[in-house]
Design a protein around this nucleic acid. Structure first.
Lengths: 213, 213, 213, 213
DNA sequence: AATGAATGAGGGTTCATTCAT
DNA sequence: GATGAATGAACCCTCATTCAT
């Protein structure tokens, strides 16, 4: 019946609108400071409707956390499993336009603080999956000589995570509208060659610097 | 007066204990989630005493924010203005045991969200001061050849900030008890030479770097 | 809808009970001393319900102030615009059983102290309306010889206000159950003829009256 | 000793300043709304000093109530017992610049609400004293023909009280700087002759009126 | 006499949540 | 599925008051 499909769509719409509203508010002002009433107002529904869909505020947080995690994992997987050379993959991993975990740090923190076994399981599973894929990538990178032998896997992973965090926290570095291409390129260079650059320098020789823009 | 010194000390003690308790709780669970009652309990005083000292919860946040900012600025200044070669200064800046801004992200966020002109002024002043000192350091570094000419100041500063943030968010990298020396050293290397290390590899040539699309 | 009528009625009932309870308590012990909890208890609802209806204690005060003002104005208007001779109208104005402004002096004071433009506007509008109607009545009274020519409109209005205030503050003078008929009659006489009564006494001569310094 | 007298004076000064501050604040914003801290600030002392002098807020209210009552009674007594004809005495009673009970209505209300036997006694004694003196005055007035025989003592006393209240609540009628002489004279006339004035009218016969200027 | 520090009791307000429709 | 009405728990904050000096 059309009637049913109408209902269906209305329901789906409500659910989606609630999630969208919640996501925006959680991101901007954190989970604790965001009230259900505010979410409901923004979504154009009654607060009670949120309960009908998510049972509780924590339920809503959990649901959104799940979405965030799954989306992130999927994105990372698709990058890691895709074609492309090592450097490109790394760059994608770091600078791709990701709606990632850390971007929703507060949702994650709140969700993790819930004593919910499902959460733990989800997190552990996701982390292990990502870690595995990342380790394979690193191995590949090492074989191709992209990674200095003196640096441990753990350091490299932290290093990558660091760049990723940073890129996530600086929207203008990712593929957003306000994207800053030059900065991104320079940071890529820094990623691979460090602050000194890959120059055959024995000892830092003075006068050379200074052609800076 | 001797008569007052007893009072004074008691007052200072209360104030300090409150601040310490608040700092810990704010850090662990965020400002909004931390109640004054909890702070008071931890500090061993009555909630009202917090009001006598700080006038309001926001007042407390503001005061602590001020402390955090001033402490951070002072530390950074002392490093930047101190003796030492460029690399050492940078390392200090990044890995020194700092009670820094980003470590108290929530306090900062909360304080900034207050429509308080004093806050804005304090922030702007601090940022400008630090930026100036940092720029001088970078100039020095460039002259000594420690910074690849193709990299702009802005990128270098972001790069440094990135490491600093990361170090701050990973206690085991700074001079804390759980300090992880090996990791820190590796990250230092990464900082200067990037993931590839300073090897005589032909591929990515100099300033041209990165033939990526 | 029938579906809503149940809600509606419940809501209206709650609202009314809250207002009734608040009115009584405000009158007896003043606004400041009356707590929301007390009002809630008396109204048989939860304190929060008061918030759902009036947003805040001040909101409640404002709403009640509005009711009081509007009721007063309506009553006065109906008297002033009604039929009846001048003396009867005046008596009605003064001694009618009114739930009037001054009876709720504290509500008025509290409401006026709120820096609310709506309040100011409401007051000004009401006052101007009443003043106009009253002025018309006085003119009529003058034409009919009920008002001594030597007395200015302003004085007459104050005189009336004085009686009204007094009647309001002494319930036993108005049409309440404890009504004191004799007293009311005597005060009516005093109103029209003063303490000396309308006797052919020589001493104070006519319009000239009062040679007092 | 000078030292002692200095102390003495300082103490007296504190006490007085506290009372003055309290009086002003109580008058303007009521007892409940006025905090001890506010009084202390205005008086330039510590809140505790108020305790040293008055033991509690209620104590302060009681003390001030006593002052107000005694001052009022003394003033009324001196008027009632003084020389002067009946009309002058009445006028003084009503329009004299009095710092009277009703002017401090809130102090009175608050003090009366205290379940303090001293208060009751003080009030009863004062009221009886004043009533007696007033009754004597009325008797005198009756004998001299100033009071219409048809009006009972009770009504006359209420009538006087009414004028007094009114005068008190309208500062511009009493001997204050902003004193409005004309208004006061007209109200005096109204007091003695009522709204119709002492004209040889038999009975307000409708159509007759019309001698108005 | 006077005060700074500290507090207990209580008030207004918010918010997640339930109930009845 | 959706909502308006109502609420319990908890929070921030105020204020009269006490304590120690």
């Amino acid at each position: 019946m059309d009637k049913n499909s109408g209902f269906r769509r209305r329901k789906e719409q409500s659910r989606e609108r609630i999630q969208r509203a919640a996501l925006e508010l959680f991101r901007v002002q954190g989970v604790k400071k965001t009230t259900l009433a505010e979410i409901a107002r923004r979504a154009g529904v009654s607060p009670v409707t949120i309960y009908n869909h998510f049972a509780s505020k924590d339920g809503l947080v959990k649901e959104m956390f799940k979405d965030v995690v799954e989306g992130t994992v999927a994105t990372m997987q698709s990058i890691l499993d895709g074609d492309g050379a090592f450097p490109e993959k790394l760059e994608s991993l770091i600078f791709a336009k990701l709606e990632m975990l850390r971007h929703h740090g507060d949702i994650v923190a709140q969700a993790i603080s819930l004593p919910d076994p499902d959460m733990r399981e989800l997190i552990e599973y996701s982390v292990s999956q990502i870690t595995h894929a990342l380790m394979r990538l690193l191995e590949e990178g090492r074989l191709q000589g992209y990674i200095h032998p003196g640096i441990s896997d753990r350091s490299v992973m932290l290093y990558i995570e660091m760049f990723r965090d940073f890129a996530i926290n600086h929207d203008h570095l990712t593929g957003k509208p306000e994207h800053d291409v030059r900065l991104t390129q320079e940071l890529s260079t820094l990623f691979f060659y460090g602050i000194m650059g890959n120059r055959h320098i024995e000892v830092p020789q003075d006068g050379e610097g200074k052609e800076k823009a």
